[in-house]
């Protein structure tokens, strides 16, 4: 049984499902930490700026001519029309290529691909969002969506962990969110500096600081492979039902629509059936190595 039903079904607009990416201008670059930047893109085609929609948790294939493509999740609010953000860690030729292009330059986009966070599963529930490192990027559109639909759910908690205070993504926004009464934000770092007054340690330790109303809670997790695993197990041990735990996974992606085979994960194509998975759907393989 597939527990995951997205309330939106956003697929590439006509012409964006083929191999020819469409052009988007880099309109802004925001430095997040030493190797991570947020790129704001705006489609060159004005009508696409208006019509392009995505669901929180979906990704685009970003293209640099002659260099290649990389799957990057969309990290801006789904309500922001006209421009969208991609937060990118410079670890490969494509991501470095995007960086080299710089503000005013053009990259290619195909997408949006995949299935995002299950926005129709939250009604009347507590929501815990747990992110590690750059894993906050695909969670950011979800947070924006939740803040817009705040009345639908009960408590909303954001747990975020990263290496050091300087490594936090969206630092200003995190500050702003911390000040809100309708959102509980807890941030922890592995290595504190002398100005840091918050918690220190792995992000799952933050679970000790909050009350988890097990069967009334929906959990969204995104982080490195190991964190995803540890976090999911922690929530299961707190008796959160497997059908209410959602994890976003990272894999090698080439086509984006479940054909090239690179991202296969058991019976799933991560690019098409994910990247967000309900734990109940992957429980049989989630703890296994090299699947």
């Amino acid at each position: 049984m597939i527990h995951h039903v997205a309330d939106m079904d956003h697929r590439p607009p006509p012409g964006m499902g083929g191999w020819m990416p469409v052009e988007a201008t880099i309109v802004n670059i925001q430095q997040e930490n030493f190797n991570t930047r947020t790129f704001t893109l705006r489609f060159v085609d004005e009508s696409l700026c208006e019509s392009y929609r995505f669901e929180p948790g979906q990704f685009n294939m970003l293209f640099v001519p002659g260099v290649g493509e990389a799957a990057i999740s969309i990290s801006s609010s789904p309500y922001q029309i006209g421009a969208m953000d991609h937060t990118i860690r410079m670890v490969g030729a494509v991501t470095r290529g995007i960086d080299r292009i710089g503000v005013g330059g053009v990259v290619g986009v195909r997408g949006p691909f995949g299935r995002g966070w299950p926005l129709n599963k939250l009604a009347g529930k507590d929501v815990i969002i747990l992110g590690g490192g750059i894993g906050l990027a695909p969670l950011r559109p979800l947070i924006h969506w939740l803040l817009r639909h705040r009345e639908q759910c009960r408590r909303v908690v954001l747990l975020y962990g990263c290496r050091s205070p300087e490594d936090r993504l969206y630092a200003a926004e995190l500050e702003a969110w911390s000040g809100r009464s309708d959102l509980d934000v807890l941030v922890t770092v592995d290595n504190a500096d002398e100005h840091w007054t918050g918690p220190v340690g792995v992000v799952t330790n933050l679970l000790q600081r909050i009350k988890v109303n097990a069967d009334q809670t929906v959990v969204f997790v995104c982080g490195p492979r190991v964190l995803n695993r540890v976090a999911a197990w922690n929530f299961l041990q707190l008796h959160v039902p497997p059908a209410q735990v959602y994890v976003s996974l990272e894999r090698n992606m080439n086509c984006g629509f479940g054909r090239c085979g690179h991202c296969q994960y058991g019976k799933h194509f991560v690019c098409r059936d994910g990247p967000v998975f309900c734990f109940a759907d992957i429980a049989d393989i989630f703890a296994k190595e090299e699947i």
Binding site: A70, V91, G92, R225, N252, H262, Q264, E290
Partner: peptide, 28 residues
């Protein structure tokens, strides 16, 4: 044409191939 038996087939930037052993690739 690509093969899931290639070591680099499942390569993830920053963390390496997912199926790093021949056993895992044959199993897949």
């Amino acid at each position: 044409w690509e093969s899931c038996f290639s070591h680099q087939f499942s390569y993830v930037a920053g963390s390496g191939p997912v199926r790093s052993t021949i056993a895992a690739r044959y199993r897949h």
